[in-house]
Structures are given as structure tokens and as C-alpha cells.
Design a protein around this nucleic acid. Structure first.
Lengths: 203, 203
DNA sequence: GTCTATACACAGATAGAC
DNA sequence: GTCTATCTGTGTATAGAC
């Protein structure tokens, strides 16, 4: 096992811990056990817990951007792009236990450094901007029909997905959320035929 | 100062700490300092931290129900009722730092007892049922126009508000959220004239 | 009911051997 | 790079005086 691999395994394991428990509710000990190494080894890669948080959110953000690019190259129509986007959140927590890293870090914002907060803000912007772009294009295509600012609507859709994850966890409702696509469809006055296929996953 | 008063002050202070920092990110020491007593005194009222969590969420839920009743008696039209409801969340965090207790506890769900989780589920149900009722009535009055299940839509609106609080905190956007009323208006195809007055506050 | 004092486990973090 | 060993601060929680 080389260096990069251990680092990657730490990131992988800690992301799961963060998404399920929250950033303040797991320790380097938990993480070390999960990876199968000692806490000191984690400190070698991430001297402070905040370094880990920063790497986590940057990695997550980058992974998200990559998926958005994949969606764009695979889905041509705006409707398909939006459906894939929404599905990203549904597939995020098939067990209904994982939250989006954005939601967790926003909830735990008080204990995070300014650097990490800047990154989660950037993540939010990436999402809202991307959805806004899709909405605008869809409006031109005639796929969506809405009045009001695409940016406001996009922010609403992003907030809706983040909130829906909270609701699903609280209600212990696994699987694709039954309520979300209809809500968004109502928002955009589009038909949205057929079930949404779950294809993309956040790495 | 009698017993009841100290207990109440503890609840008041701890609610603020939970909403701003999260349940795992404040200690009995922080709380004691905030109230002006010693940690042992807190343990007298709430032997374990989970007891505190349970009292907090029950109190919060009850306060919420009371406000919902107040809204019903004050606002006759469904549109006014919904506007007041949405405003509840906006006024929640005028500084953009406080989350709804539901959001915090859902985010920290992994470290809470089953009893507390049942209470936050009940809180969620209270909200969704209430909004659903308003939507149905508004549809009859002709104030709202939407297709699809009122319950699904209500859950979407609740999720939207919870998610919007996360977004506002991350973006450090204080005051009434500029994006929310338009989104809900789009969702319900209603006009929603005039600014929403901030009157109710969660106790 | 509130306090002082304290127990005990665990947190994040570091030094230094291998 | 990974380990053992350890430091120091802080967490929840309790015993018992007042």
C-alpha cells in the first residue's frame, strides 16, 4: 500500500462517518478503527481534524463537479439533466441515513474553520449555478415553464433536496423519495414521464 | 428564583446553543456558563444530556403547535396562513445562524436516543399535516392552484424551509430569504402580494 | 437546589522508535 | 509511513457538603 492509497482510504471512511454521524460525532479513534490503522497515522496525513474537513469537502466538491459534467455529456435534454441531478441526491442515501456533505457541514458550521466554510459556500454556488443554467435552457426548449428568476428557483430546488435528505433521515424513509419529483414537476410545470433512473453516485 | 425558573432558563439557553452549534458541539460547561450556574446543577434537572434533548424537542414541538393555533385564529385566509408559516422559519434565524431544532436533531440523529427521534418525527408530521391542511383549504378557496397530492407538496414545502435554513447559514445570508416566497408561489400558482410581515416567533 | 470536588473516559494532538 | 507511548484538555457524570 502506497501513501496515496492510505490517504484515500481515510478520506473514504471519514466521508461515510461524517455523512452518517456528523463531523463532531466521530473521533480519530473511530476513523482509525474503520480504516484499520492507528490514530497517529491519520495525524500524519491530516494533522488537525480541520485539515481532514477541508480535504473532504474539496474532494466532495470536485467529485460533484465531475458528475455534473458526466450528466451534461450523457443527457442532452434539460429535463433529463434535471432528473439526473435530483437522482444524485436520492441515490446519495439509499438507506436514508447519509446526508449530503453540504448539509452536515452547514449544520456543524460553528465548529469549522473559515476555509472549510468558504468551500461549502463554493459547493452551494456550483449547485445553484448549474441548476439555474439547466432551468434557463429548459425554458428555452419549452421543457419547463415557470415565472420568476431561474436563480431563485435553482436555489429553492437545491434547498429542497438538502431539506428532503433531513426529512428522509428523520422519517427513516429509504429509497427514492416519493414526494420529490412531483414537487419539482409542479414547480416547473413539466410532465416528467417515467421513473427516474438511478445511475450517478457521488464518489 | 424557584425551581421551575432555573429549569426554564436552562432550556432557553440550551436551545440557543443547539440551534447555533449543534447538539454535539456544546457541553454542559458551556451551558452552565451561559446560564450562570454550575454543571452539577444542570445534572440535577437533566441527569443525562439525552434528557435535555428530549425536553428540548418536546418543548419546541409544543411551542410550534401553539403558534400554529395562533396563526389559525389570526389569519382567516389560507394564503395568509401559509405566509405566516413560512415567516416562522424566516424569523427563526434573523441572523442566519440559527437552525430549526428539527434540522439540527436530524443532522445529529446518530447520537440521539430513540425517544428523541420519535419526537422529531412527530414534529415533522405536525408540520406536514398542518401545511397539507392549509393547502387543501386554499385549493377549495381558489387561492392556490396545484396538481398532485397536497401531502406530497406539504412535505416538499417543509423540506424546502429546512433546507433553506441550511443554505442561508452556509451563505451567511441574514434577514428574510429573498428566494423563498417566489419559489413557493411558483409551486402554488398564487400571487402573494406584498411583503410578508414577520410577527410570529418560535419561543 | 446549588455548590465543591472529583472520577473516569475520551477527545485531539505530539514525540520518537522502528 | 506506521507504530507505541504519552500529554493535556475536555467531555459527561456522580458523591456528598451546605
Amino acid at each position: 500500500m502506497e501513501t496515496a492509497d492510505t490517504k484515500e482510504r481515510i478520506l473514504e471512511a471519514s466521508q461515510a462517518l461524517v455523512q452518517v454521524r456528523g463531523f463532531n460525532a466521530f473521533s480519530y479513534r473511530d476513523l482509525a478503527e474503520s480504516v484499520g490503522i492507528r490514530t497517529a497515522s491519520i495525524h500524519y496525513y491530516f494533522p488537525r481534524k480541520d485539515d481532514l474537513a477541508l480535504s473532504l469537502v474539496r474532494r466532495y466538491h470536485e467529485g460533484f463537479r465531475q458528475i455534473l459534467r458526466q450528466i451534461e455529456s450523457r443527457e442532452v435534454r434539460s429535463e433529463g439533466r434535471l432528473a439526473s441531478y435530483l437522482n444524485l441526491f436520492s441515490s446519495l442515501s439509499e438507506d436514508g441515513l447519509r446526508l449530503c456533505l453540504f448539509g452536515v457541514f452547514s449544520a456543524d458550521a460553528a465548529s469549522l474553520s473559515e476555509e472549510v466554510l468558504m468551500e461549502i459556500r463554493a459547493f452551494c454556488d456550483t449547485n445553484v449555478d448549474w441548476v439555474s443554467k439547466v432551468l434557463k435552457a429548459g425554458q428555452k426548449e419549452g421543457a419547463f415553464s415557470f415565472s420568476g428568476s431561474p436563480l431563485e428557483l435553482a436555489r429553492g430546488i437545491f434547498a429542497l433536496m438538502e431539506g428532503e435528505l433531513l426529512v428522509r433521515r428523520a422519517l427513516r424513509a429509504p429509497g427514492p423519495p416519493p414526494g420529490i419529483p412531483p414537487v419539482v414537476r409542479a414547480l416547473l410545470s413539466c410532465r416528467g414521464d417515467g421513473p427516474f433512473a438511478a445511475t450517478d453516485h457521488i464518489p
